[in-house]
Structures are given as C-alpha cells and as structure tokens.
C-alpha cells in the first residue's frame, strides 16, 4: 500500500506507526528525522486552556505538497510524511508531524527543519487559543519568517 505524503485530519496520529510505514520496504534508508509540534500551556495571551485549528481545505494540502517537492529538490531524501491536525485540541495534544527518511542523517535533519520552517509561514492554518480571558487568534511571529529566510526563501507572512 502506498501511504499518502500529506494528511490533514481531526484524529490524532501514532508516530511509531507513521515511521514504520515510512521505512517499510526501503533498505536504502539509514536515517529518519521526526518533528512533532504539540499544544503548549502558554501563548502570547497568557495561560492556554485549549486550542482550535482552522485550515483552507484543498489549498493547505497543495501548499504542503509543493513544499515537499521543494524539499526533494534541495535534499537527498527518500520518504516524507506530514500530518497536521485541525479542529479542537487540548493541552499537550500532538498538532503536527513531519518525518523524513534519508540515507544519512544530515539530509533528514535539514529537510525536516526546512519543511517545518516552510509550513509555519506558508501553509494556511490558523490557531485560536482559549485563555481565561476568552478565545484569541494567535499572532504570526517575525521569528518564523526569519527562520524561512535562512533557506533563501522570503516568507512575507508576519506583519
């Protein structure tokens, strides 16, 4: 069975299952790098109680697929798996998984970081945090634009 590269879903994911599927049948893989983003208990608006994630169905998947193509053209990588959750999330929940397999660790690490830097500023997702003062949309960060700029890509996301 061929696994999808990109999934946007309400459901949680199991990292072990995803990494096993990414490695399955490919003896050329010598390294897998994974990044998992999770719901933190503090944001710019103070203590966070819960989170809601919105996306742009269709565009979000296409944007991430195009990022994966760019990663493939820059790095020697063998497999990529990106899962991003949407909908209501609780503290400590998993939000996003980026997993990259490669022959050697360097390209796996680099591609994983490149994909996350890209996703943070170019994939249409919006976080809304619930705090004691009510719900607020999370502000984009200049630091995330700067992270993508290190790869020579202009983000133009944060105001």
């Amino acid at each position: 069975m061929v696994c999808p590269t990109v999934s946007i879903q309400l459901a949680d994911f199991d990292v072990d299952v995803e990494v096993r599927a990414l490695r399955a049948g490919d003896a050329g893989v010598g390294a897998v790098a994974t990044f998992i983003g999770t719901v933190r208990d503090r944001g710019d608006g103070g203590a966070v109680q819960a989170m809601e994630l919105e996306h742009y169905p269709g565009m979000t998947e296409r944007a991430i697929e195009s990022m994966v193509e760019q990663a493939r053209s820059r790095f020697e990588i063998r497999g990529v798996r990106v899962i991003h959750r949407v909908g209501p999330l609780a503290l400590q929940d998993q939000i996003v998984l980026v997993a990259v397999s490669s022959a050697h660790r360097r390209d796996a690490f680099l591609a994983c970081e490149f994909l996350m830097d890209y996703l943070k500023t170019q994939a249409p997702f919006w976080k809304k945090e619930t705090t004691a003062d009510g719900a607020r949309w999370v502000d984009a960060r200049q630091a995330d634009d700067a992270a993508l700029a290190r790869w020579g890509v202009s983000a133009g996301n944060a105001a």
Binding site: L53, H84, V96, A123, W126, K127
Partner: peptide
Amino acid sequence: RCAVDQVMADESAPLRDGAEVAFFPPVTGG
C-alpha cells in the same frame, strides 16, 4: 494575506472568470 485559486498571491495577481479568491490573516500553523 491573499490567495488566488488556492495559491498565495499578491495584489498584482490577475484574476479570471470563476476564480476563487481568499483573504485571511497571516498563517499560524505548525
């Protein structure tokens, strides 16, 4: 931020009959 037919776009972007245009705040996923 803006998108035309589900691709990020700036204000000089040409449109077409039936185009899908979207406006949204800076993205905050990940």
